[in-house]
Amino acid sequence: MSKPYLDPVTWYATLPTVFVCACLLITDPEGRVLLVKPNYRPTWDFPGGVVEEDEAPHECARREVTEELGVPVEVGDLLVVHWSPPSGERPRPLISFVFDGGVLSDADQITPEAEELDEVAFLPWHTAVTLLSGNITTRLLTARLARHEGRPIYLSDE
């Protein structure tokens, strides 16, 4: 005898959930990487943020970066998908998407969102990696490699 199927609402309610964020790798004509210093955490980060309900990751990256920097941005190719297990106070896995944000020629266009950001800077790669937390450093260096190789890369913190 076969087991009855669950109705879709019940079945979907049993599935695990994750947190999702999306950001952009943006550089300047000299090849320096753009990082932001949020005022709500001690470390620097990529420009980007958390995906809202019914929002695609690439749309989130565009919205968040435009809001944070005050500059309209184009979202290019997917560079990295990074899966991280639950950690510390985060009770669910996190999936981070990094898209290519291209080269921003005129840094004077940037108007940082003062309510959220303390600083915005184009930094040499060797400096940038010292300002990021461990898994974000890995994500940044992997995004650089993916852009160079012209292919997306999957990361896992397992």
Rank of each mutant, 00 (worst) to 15 (best):
R32F: 13
L140A: 10
E116S: 14
P8N: 02
S2Q: 15
F99E: 01
R147F: 02
D157G: 15
T14W: 01
E74M: 07
T142Q: 03
S133Q: 14
S156Q: 10
V51D: 04
G88V: 13
W83I: 09
N39D: 09
V81G: 03
W11T: 04
G102P: 01
I136T: 12
W44G: 00
Y5D: 12
E64P: 04
P29D: 11
I136R: 14
A61K: 05
A56I: 07
V20A: 12
R41T: 13
A114E: 15
S96P: 00
Y5P: 04
R139P: 03
G134N: 13
T10F: 06
P112E: 08
E67V: 09
D54W: 06
G31T: 11
D54H: 10
V80H: 00
S96V: 03
V120Q: 08
R151S: 15
T111M: 08
I95N: 01
E55A: 05
T138K: 11
L35N: 00
D157Q: 11
A114L: 14
S96C: 09
N135I: 07
R144W: 09
L79P: 04
E149G: 09
A128E: 02
G76S: 01
A143F: 03
S84H: 06
V120L: 10
F97S: 02
R32E: 14
P72S: 09
L104D: 01
P42F: 10
P29A: 12
F46L: 06
V50Y: 07
G70K: 01
S156N: 14
